[in-house]
Amino acid sequence: MENLNTTESIDKSVGEISGESGTSTTESSNESPGAGHELNVFLGEGMMGGMGALIDGVRAWARAAFMHGIHLRYQIAKIKEYATSFNNNVNKIAEAKRSLSVLNGVPNQSGLGLGTTTISEVMRHMGSSDNPLVFNNGDYAKYLMSNAIADLKANYKDFYYGGTAPLTGGAVKVLGNLKNMSELTLRAGVLARGGKAGNLNVVATWLHDMTIGEVAGLAAKGEKEAMTGIKILKQASKKAQKY
């Protein structure tokens, strides 16, 4: 994780195409020199009107591509961090894995656009070279990544801190007697209550590997998919017949 903080040196060079300084090309040409500026000079001022939309499109694409890189690198950095700091501690590593899977399920956080992508998909993506920008601009990816981590920490505390987040008052009410299951994942919980894995087909996939406590927290806030997840958990097995 120590490499992630060295963002100053690359800040200037990537500011132009990050998209965060504004999407208008005419605005960015007035800012400090960088990759985008050179592109503007190369194309000439006269062409900028016609090329603006195209350049914006390329920038948007580049940003999306880098965002994928951010998420992949972030996950790998987290794995390394947990592996070194919690060396030989099986429980802690299990916890780290769980929090990673939780992170993996964050829906479309701040344009990361990963949605319901699973870890295996992310890893496959990382292994392939269909996204050369990620590899050719490692520094830029790191810069954006550190931004994304800060954003995650600030706005997605519940996800970022994974299974260690304490139960909220609402979650306790939602869970009721199932409070002691809050550390299990939703998938494990459904199986533990006598359900089948197929019961989860009606629940959004990004919830499957979240802990029950987190799903309950979302359900208490009125998140429809999480409420369905809690319902499936509570009614995992068929009710005994009266007759």
Partner: peptide, 10 residues
């Protein structure tokens, strides 16, 4: 009202 969401009731 439910504690965190007024669309649902306790």
């Amino acid at each position: 009202n439910s504690q965190e969401n007024c669309k649902y009731y306790e």
